[in-house]
């Protein structure tokens, strides 16, 4: 990519091309969700809609730090991680609109879908359940002596489930190559973190299981990337399960239908001023790693891609009723 200037070397092991690609995924995540909001308002999204506004930075940065062959399991606010791992906007749109062409043929909703070849395993709604499952994926990597890593996301709320604790402990004891990304975004539905736990730092929960645990500013994309990369490589080289707490903030309600009455105006404004994408744009712009032109080119590419995807997805039919049958067993 031809760009104006490259004064200082990009951070960590990122090339300038990587930096622009990260921008692409950040913006794509946000724009795709905005498009979904439009569709939701038009009644074209069939179930609920869940936003990751304000959290795109950590989703993209943590997943971007993985290598091909690694597998992650996202939660409802990790659209960004799935896009990084190769999920296509049109797949996401078809899922939300329950189209027959969706990855789950209309059986599952929103971003509950997987592509293990690309490296992501779909979640179920039951919080915490993906932690033991991802421990099992990491166990297989270990048994087969493959240098691959698993990554699993949990929210501050999901950390209160039994499955989370059993899964993390299991992974810790087995020294599995698993990175647990803890998304401390302030709330679990309406419940603030302090009603969820008494620990001051969610990373303490990892420490209590004897695993290396760190906390990072989740809205600093490059800081998250750098630390995630280290932990992923530590896990890969046999150092066992790692935990990374990303401190961020959920700027929208739990779902589109949630009035957010429990989040104050001041708090929302504060975090709006700490937007991960804005910060990233200033950072790469100030350092001369990207020009406004570079970013505009990416923006218009995204606009084009999304509008094409919407056109395609909208014109697809809903599944035929009878196709609900079958597929329960092999």
């Amino acid at each position: 990519m031809e760009s104006a200037l490259t004064p200082a070397a990009p951070p960590a092991d990122l090339t300038q091309e990587n930096l622009l690609e990260i921008y692409y995924f950040l913006r794509l995540t946000r724009s795709l969700e905005e498009q979904l909001v439009n569709l939701y308002r038009q009644g074209k999204v069939i179930g609920g809609l869940y936003r990751s506004l304000g959290q795109e930075g950590e989703s993209v940065a943590t997943s971007y730090a993985l290598r091909p062959g690694d597998i992650l399991s996202p939660l409802i606010r990790n659209l960004g991680s799935m896009l990084v791992k190769g999920a296509q906007p049109v797949e996401v749109l078809r899922q939300y609109m329950a189209k027959t062409s969706s990855p789950t043929a209309g059986r599952e909703m929103n971003i509950h879908f997987n592509d293990l070849d690309k490296g992501f395993l779909g979640q179920i709604s039951h919080l915490g359940d993906m932690v033991p499952v991802m421990a099992g994926i990491a166990l297989t990597f270990k048994m087969r002596v493959e240098r691959r890593v698993g990554m699993v996301y949990v929210g501050d709320g999901a950390m209160s489930t039994g499955a989370f604790h059993e899964g993390v402990n299991f992974a810790a004891v087995q020294k599995l190559p698993l990175v647990v990304v803890v998304e401390n975004n302030g709330y679990a539905f309406s419940t603030p973190v302090h009603k969820q736990t008494r620990v001051a730092s969610l990373a303490d929960k990892g420490r209590s299981y004897g695993i290396a645990s760190y906390t990072v500013d989740g809205n600093d994309v490059l800081a998250v990337y750098g630390l995630a990369r280290q932990l992923i490589e530590a896990a890969r080289s046999g150092e066992g399960t790692q935990m990374l707490e990303v401190v961020t903030y959920r700027r929208k309600g739990h779902a589109e239908h949630d009035d957010q009455r429990y989040q104050s105006e001041e708090e929302l404004a504060l975090w709006e001023g700490n937007d991960p994408i804005d910060r990233y744009v200033s950072r790469i712009g100030d350092a001369g790693w990207a020009t406004p032109d570079d970013l505009e080119r990416i923006d218009s590419r995204i606009e084009r891609e999304i509008s094409e995807a919407v056109g395609t997805a909208e014109s697809d039919p809903l599944p035929e009723g009878e196709s609900a049958i079958g597929g329960v067993f092999a």
Binding site: G106, L318, A324, V328
Partner: peptide, 10 residues
């Protein structure tokens, strides 16, 4: 005898 699918038709 299936899980409950999402699409209205299903």
């Amino acid at each position: 005898d299936t899980p409950i699918p999402y699409a209205p038709t299903l």
